[in-house]
Every structure is written in structure tokens, then in C-alpha cells.
Computed example of a mutant assay.
Amino acid sequence: MNWDWEKLSEQKRRQGSPLPDPGRFGEDLGKKLSTFKPRLPGGPKIAVLVVLLLWAASGIYIVEPDEAGVVQRFGAYVLITGPGPHYHLPFPIETVKTPKVSQVRRVEIGFRSVYGRSGESLQNRSVPEESLMLTGDENIVDVQFSVQYQIANAVDYLFRIDHPEETVKSAAEAAMREVMGDAQIDSVLTSGKLKVQNDTKVLLQTMLERYGSGIDILAVQLQDVHPPKEVVEAFKDVASAREDKSRFINEADAYFNDILPKARGRAAAILNEATAYREQTIRRAKGGADRFSALRTEYDKARDVTRERLYIEGMESLLSTPELEKIILSDEAARQAVPYLPLGQLPPAAAPGDGAGRTEAPKADPAKAAKGGRP
């Protein structure tokens, strides 16, 4: 340093300019500062006042609509504030925490979602140490599920438990293992998933209330339930067989529900037709009997006239029927002609061993055998 100073002195001397004295330079700087300080109005008092104002203003805080303001005084809970601007005593006297009480939080158990650069979920990474569970019938099942929850009590959430997310995760895994331990694997893989979700939700909520966590469980959702990879194919075959069974039962029920009303309707129609036929036959027979009784009364009063009228009505009915084949012979022609037998209308001969083994002679048709006179 001495050599440098001497070299610099020699250089300045040659140039003709005096060198500054280091000691004199410090003294000049102190004098300038002493003359500058009195020029500030108030001096250090203003600076202290500004610092105090900034410290007091640090107590202003705003609570968002989805938050709750929890004020602490020397670390102890004092009060809770709602949305809007508020004020608390500056740090370190009071502090405030604003947890989001309306935010729906989600915890994954048995798997972890893997997200891409744009934020979309690409795939789920399995976590076997969390997902493998034992059912009530001693079968191993791989259960992946998620839990959705909200903050119900901000004070309990902040001060009663440490690491709330880890607490919910551990409690949810314990609750699911307990529910699975009481269930059968067939029910878990097929129709019992909804019951498993509801039972786990109730049990998890009970556990967290016992902890005083201030957490409200919104839903427990099963993401994937399947047997271990070693036996998954066999379980798929069983599940397919059960689905086929259910489908066949549904088809049979549908056919039953379709054919039974039709059969009942047909049976009711047949019964109505039979009832109508019965009433018709009874009324017709009763009318015939009444008519015969009336004719009997008239016949007793005038037998010849009644006989003649009945004969005329019978012949009129026979002759006015176009479908009926009629052969009319006079008395003289009937005495000369061979008696007419309707051989083409004879019934077939009885089979051997049938009754008496003989056939009855056909009855003569009175219209075909009419001779033109009275019988």
C-alpha cells in the first residue's frame, strides 16, 4: 500500500495537481452530513412515526367469500370473522389465518392420479400397500377410492389436528378396511358397492367427529374394485356368469309379465263367452218350454186346428230352406218307385271291437220322404 501511495503521489506531482489526504476526506464527509441532518423537518421522529403507521396498517386483512378468518392473539384463538375487510392487532400481538371453508378437498387412497402438462389426468398409478384389503370371506380385493370433504369448523380444523389431509387419508383407509372386513367379495364386486360407499362414509365421519377434526365428509367414491391380478380372469368369468344369470332372470320376468296378463285376459274372455252362452241357452230352453206349454194349452182347446197349423209351419220352414235338398213324391209315384235311401250320407262302419259291432240305420229325412200328403 505504501508503494502504491507513493507511486500515485509521484504521478500527481508530475501532473501538477495536489493529492487528497485520506484523513481530511473523512472529516469533510462528517461535516457535510452534520450540515444536512438539521435540514429534515422532525428528523428521526418522522421516520419512527412512518414505521409505526406501517406496522399498524399491517393489521388490515380481507376475508374472501369462500374463507373464514381465524384471529389468534399470542397464538391463542380469539374470534372468527366472516367475509369482508377486517382489522387485527399487528404482528406479533395478533395473527390471522384464512382457510377456505367452502372448497371441496379430495384425498386419493389406493391410487395416485398422474397429470399431464396441461393439467388433464392421464392415468392412475396404483399404490398396493393402500389398496389391497381382506374381505369377510377371506378373499383379497384391490380397492381404489377417493374421499371428498369440506371444513365444517375452521377452529377445530386448524387447532385440534395436525396434518388434516394425512389424518383424513389414514382414517379413510382404516374405515374402508373395517367395512371390507364385514363384506363378502361377491357383493363387493357386483351389487354391494353402493352399500360399501355409504357404510364407509358413515364410519369415517364418526371417526373424524371423535377426533374433533372439524371436517365434514361429503362423499366416498369407489374408483375401481377388482381382485388381484393373479386371479382376475377367473373372477371375470364368474362375474360374466352372474351377469348372464341376471339377464336370463330379467328376460324370464319380462316374458312372465307379458304372457300372464294376456292369459288372464283370454281366460276372462272365455268365462264371459261361456256365461253369455249359458244365459242364452237357458233363456232359449226356457222360451221353448214356455212356447210348448202355450201350444199344449191351445192344443187342448182345438186339437185339429193346432195340428194343422203346426204341420203347415213345419213344412213352411222345411221348404223355405234353400240349403236343404228336397225330393217331393206324390202318393202314386211313391207306390211305384223304389224307396229312396241316402247311401252317400250313411256313417262309416264301426271298427272291429267297437261296441256291439253294428251300425245304426240312418233316420229318414221327413222332407225327402214326403209323399205330398200328411204323415
Rank of each mutant, 00 (worst) to 15 (best):
K32R: 15
A56V: 13
A47P: 00
S58I: 01
K37D: 00
A47F: 12
A47D: 01
G42W: 09
K37A: 09
P44G: 05
L49T: 10
S58P: 02
L53A: 15
A56D: 05
V63H: 11
P44M: 01
G43Y: 09
V63F: 09
V63I: 14
I62L: 15
A47N: 00
L54R: 04
L53G: 12
T35Y: 08
L33M: 09
P41T: 10
A57N: 06
P41I: 12
T35G: 07
K45V: 07
W55M: 07
P44A: 07
K32Q: 11
L40N: 09
D66K: 12
G42F: 11
R39N: 05
K32W: 05
W55H: 08
P41Q: 13
S34A: 15
L54M: 13
W55K: 03
I62R: 14
A47K: 00
P38Q: 02
I46R: 04
L54Y: 08
L40D: 04
P38N: 05
K37C: 02
G43A: 06
P44V: 01
K32N: 05
V63S: 08
V51D: 08
V63L: 12
F36L: 14
T35D: 13
V48I: 10
S58T: 14
V48F: 04
P38F: 00
P38R: 03
L54H: 02
L40E: 05
F36G: 05
R39P: 00
L53V: 15
P65V: 10
V48D: 01
F36C: 11
S34N: 09
F36N: 02
S58F: 08
K32G: 03
R39W: 11
K45P: 00
P41W: 13
K37E: 01
A56F: 10
A57Q: 03
I46D: 06
D66G: 12
V51R: 01
F36R: 10
D66M: 14
L53H: 02
S58G: 09
W55N: 10
P44F: 01
K45C: 01
P38H: 02
Y61I: 10
P44R: 02
K32Y: 11
G59I: 06
G43W: 06
L40R: 08
Y61Q: 02
P41Y: 12
P65N: 13
A56C: 11
S58W: 06
G42D: 09
L53P: 01
K37N: 02
A57L: 15
V48C: 04
L33P: 00
G59W: 10
Y61C: 09
I60D: 05
P65L: 14
L52G: 08
P38D: 00
L33Y: 00
A47L: 13
I46W: 08
E64C: 08
E64L: 15
L52E: 02
V51K: 05
E64R: 14
G42P: 06
L49Y: 10
I62N: 14
S58V: 07
G59C: 09
V50A: 15
L54N: 03
G42V: 01
L40C: 07
E64I: 00
K37L: 12
